[in-house]
């Protein structure tokens, strides 16, 4: 996923809605294709400094993720890992990306908040945003995805093939 957003050097062609990565500036591409890493970075002490807007839409996302409205005045070091994860997700939505790459988006969340996050992700998908979600939770994959791949020894294996692959490994 780091290679898709061009944070790591990579080869090959990437096209999103007829827009080619190699014909775009990297920072423009990353606004189109947003990556939310499992652990996001913080460059300032105050939460609010990490958001370049205070639009109503952001406030709605914050509320939908069960975060308090005054969280922008908090210190980052006061945040729990679950709050950081949700804020990282909210931050990525501000640029209105056309594709979202989510690395374990709910790893630090409890069941209830996970469901709220999943609801938001589905809303994005309904809007036409392409989503790649990496998870260790097989049930989450089944709840969320219309295509599932397993990562085995660095190779993507489609879900429908996984049974025969397992047999091959065992055999």
């Amino acid at each position: 996923m780091r290679a898709i957003v061009d944070l790591d050097c990579s080869e090959g062609e990437l096209i999103l809605n007829k827009k080619r990565r190699d014909k775009m500036k990297a920072n423009k591409w990353r606004k189109l294709v947003a990556l939310v890493p499992a652990e996001t970075g913080w460059w300032s002490e105050k939460v609010g400094d990490h958001f370049f807007t205070d639009s109503d839409e952001l406030k709605k996302i914050i509320a939908a993720l069960d975060l308090p409205a005054n969280i922008f005045n908090w210190q980052v070091n006061r945040l729990s890992s679950g709050e950081k994860q949700r804020l990282g997700f909210a931050r990525a939505l501000i640029n209105k990306p056309e594709a979202l790459l989510l690395d374990e988006p709910s790893a630090a969340l409890d069941r209830l908040t996970t469901r709220k996050m999943e609801k938001l992700i589905k809303q994005q998908a309904k809007k036409g945003v392409s989503i790649i979600l990496v998870t260790h939770d097989e049930n989450q994959a089944k709840r969320m995805a219309n295509r599932i791949f397993y990562l085995k020894n660095g190779k993507l294996i489609p879900h429908k093939d996984i049974q025969s692959h397992k047999e091959k490994l065992n055999g």
């Binding site: 920072n27 990353r30 606004k31 947003a34 996001t40 460059w43 990525a92 640029n95």
Partner: peptide, 11 residues
Amino acid sequence: KRAIEALLLLG
């Protein structure tokens, strides 16, 4: 690194 890449990821 993480903070810088977060800024880069936001465009």
